[in-house]
Simulated assay, not measured.
Amino acid sequence: MKKLFIVFALAVVTLYGFGNYFVINYYVKPGDTLYLISQRFSVSPSIILDWNDVDPYKLKIGQLLKIPQPPGILYEVKQGDTLYDISKRFFTTVSYIKKVNNLKSDFIYVGQKLFVALDGIGLAFNVNGNMFMWPIYGVISSNYGWRVHPIYKRKSFHTGVDISAPEGTPIFSGTDGVVKLAGEYGGYGLAVVVSYGKYDIVYGHMSKVSVYKGQKVSKGELLGRVGSTGISTGPHVHFEVRIKGKHTNPFVYLPPSNRIYVLREGTVNLGGE
């Protein structure tokens, strides 16, 4: 790991190098906002919030922010993870993850931190025309419609689709839009609501929220991480589509569930099923 010191806009900035990326330690100056800092370093506010536990509305002078260059996301390896699993969750390829992390083999270990730069994320996003995009790669654990509630053990209507994935899996916006809510949301736990035309799209039960209210987001932009907050039996995303406040079947707007991961033409994924 390399460590350098430079002067940037009259503020001390420390750089830590890690193979094919480095992290800037930036100290908040008078007049700084999250948006201005993101513009200064050409990093989206979502990435800054993902790397830091800060209140986007209450930055403090002298507060330390970690900013990755190039912009990207860290993932901590969980028990049972393989590089192929992780590549699916980032909609990228095994070969890309190995390259950016200087890995010589497919061996990874629990607790290892892998970096995935934004230019490699989304190589397999299924952006099928005007349809929504699946926000994560995972297993559908509960469909839209009537069910026996897993906690209350009584019949109730499930207003979205649940997609299970390990805690910490990145959640990507299924549409363009503006963040209408970011934070605690009753039984949804930590959640994000994105307003997109006539639709409000809900992403519930997050472990971390990486956007702020009023932020403009693009399809495929990071919203946060999978968790099990609120009324939940395990890590998953509750994905819900509303029109004028009324829930509707999300499957109408999403590509088929067997087409969540669609590798871009000409891109090769190294790894097995």
Results as ranks from 00 to 15, higher is better:
L4T: 13
F8N: 11
A11N: 10
V12R: 08
T14V: 13
T14G: 10
N25P: 00
Y26V: 02
Y26D: 02
V28S: 11
P30M: 04
P30N: 12
D32Y: 09
I37F: 04
S38T: 04
Q39E: 14
F41T: 03
S42V: 08
V43F: 03
S44Y: 07
S44K: 14
I47W: 01
L49K: 13
N52R: 09
V54S: 08
P56H: 12
K60A: 14
G62M: 08
P71V: 06
E76Q: 14
V77S: 04
Q79F: 07
G80N: 11
T82V: 10
T82F: 02
T82Q: 01
D85K: 13
K88W: 01
R89M: 13
F90M: 08
F90L: 06
F91H: 07
Y96H: 14
I97C: 05
K98Y: 05
K99D: 14
V100F: 13
L103I: 07
L103Q: 07
K104V: 12
K104M: 08
F107T: 15
I108A: 06
I108E: 06
Y109H: 10
G111F: 08
V116P: 06
A117V: 10
G120P: 08
G122I: 11
G122C: 09
L123G: 04
N126Y: 03
N126D: 03
N126Q: 00
G129M: 06
N130H: 01
M133D: 01
W134V: 00
I136K: 02
Y137P: 01
I140A: 02
I140W: 01
Y144N: 11
Y144P: 05
V148E: 12
V148C: 01
F157S: 02
T159W: 04
V161G: 01
V161C: 04
A165S: 10
E167M: 13
G168I: 12
P170T: 01
I171L: 11
S173C: 12
D176Y: 11
G177C: 08
K180A: 02
G189F: 04
S195N: 11
S195I: 00
K198G: 02
Y199M: 13
H205I: 03
S207T: 04
V209I: 09
S210M: 02
K213P: 00
G214T: 07
K216P: 05
G220W: 00
E221Y: 03
R225T: 02
G227N: 02
I231K: 04
G234M: 04
P235S: 09
P235E: 10
H236R: 12
H238F: 08
F239C: 05
F239Y: 15
V241K: 09
V241G: 05
R242Y: 11
I243E: 13
H247P: 14
P250T: 13
P250V: 14
F251I: 15
Y253L: 09
L254T: 02
P255R: 00
I260G: 06
I260L: 12
R264E: 15
G266R: 04
V268K: 15
V268H: 04
N269Y: 03
L270N: 12
L270R: 15
